[in-house]
């Protein structure tokens, strides 16, 4: 009984319900998924053990390789474009005294909207009949005649653009929070030394917000693995797998092709990759990196 009333365990009691829900919703399905990747289960009926057949097939699957390449591209895009824009905007916003809240709200607003709403807005904008293409055509200009979401060469970038448009406001807010925590005396000293605005950003702001900055990079890398909603709604991974990403590929196999065993193998590889990334960041932290 003393064990139950021990104060050092009280926090555990409060955490137990959440742990239980996680175990039920994430833990058990994850373990089941790990087991299913060694089967040919269709999602219904008999489960046959097939060993590593799914993985062998997967490593030979050209569309899976394409999806991985697209995920890597997606990660690179998100590690550069929204990050650079958000850093620049956040830094510029620190210099705005009046009306800053308006900009913050405006930038953050798309992040608050549901992905399906954002996607529909952009789909309508680029609709070949009702969208900008139709409008330009009506005034005799041949521009945007085809939707970038349905053009093989642009579909991935178009989906990434819309997702980036919704996401970068979030980065602005977290960078801005970090920038406000920088000691103002450092900037005053830099002013006395005659530092330019860029020098202050490069040598004071950036090093001082490094933990937040590295954290943002980490979440971008991790979130780029299961990227799904924007691709699914805007392009469905098409046309011709030109915007296929791993999570959408998994979904198609699990829920369209009735190939749950194969989809589980995809999920298992995604899981291993995320663990690897988290492990790297954990290792860097142990090595003394401020992240």
């Amino acid at each position: 009984m003393n064990f139950l009333s021990n104060k050092s365990y009280i926090a555990w009691y409060f955490v137990i319900p959440v742990v239980f829900i996680h175990l039920f919703v994430i833990g058990i399905p994850s373990i089941l998924s790990l087991a299913l990747c060694l089967t040919d289960w269709s999602g219904l009926g008999k489960i046959n053990y097939v060993g590593f057949e799914n993985f062998i097939e997967l490593f030979d699957d050209r569309y899976f390789k394409k999806a991985i390449f697209h995920n890597i591209l997606w990660t690179i895009i998100f590690l550069t474009v929204p990050v650079c824009i958000a850093l620049m905007c956040a830094y510029l916003l620190t210099g705005i005294k009046r009306g800053q809240m308006f900009y913050r709200l405006a930038f953050f607003f798309p992040y608050m909207l549901a992905s399906v709403v954002n996607c529909q807005i952009w789909k309508y904008l680029f609709h070949p009949i009702h969208g900008l293409g139709g409008f330009f055509e009506s005034i005799g200009i041949e521009a945007l005649a085809s939707s970038p979401f349905t053009t093989k060469e642009t579909s991935l970038y178009a989906a990434a653009f819309v997702d980036g448009w919704h996401f970068w406001g979030f980065l602005v807010v977290i960078y801005l929070t970090g920038m406000y925590q920088v000691d103002n005396h450092l900037y005053e000293a830099a002013d006395i030394e005659g530092a330019s605005k860029f020098q202050k950003f490069r040598y004071i702001t950036l090093p001082m917000i490094r933990p937040i900055f590295i954290f943002s990079l980490m979440i971008i890398i991790i979130w780029s693995v299961p990227v799904f909603d924007y691709v699914y709604i805007l392009t469905g991974g098409g046309p011709a797998y030109s915007s296929e990403v791993v999570a959408n590929y998994l979904y198609t196999h699990a829920f369209v092709r009735f190939n749950v065993g194969y989809a589980s193998a995809v999920g298992t590889l995604m899981f291993i990759y995320v663990i690897f990334i988290v492990g790297i960041f954990g290792l860097l932290r142990k090595l003394g990196w401020e992240i």
């Binding site: 070949p128 009949i129 009702h130 939707s147 979401f149 053009t151």
Partner: peptide
């Protein structure tokens, strides 16, 4: 619908309207 890209972009309501 004029092109492969437009065929991919057009849905039920659109093609009935067309």
């Amino acid at each position: 619908s004029g092109s492969l890209e437009n065929y991919y972009a057009i849905g039920w309501d659109d093609f009935h309207a067309q």
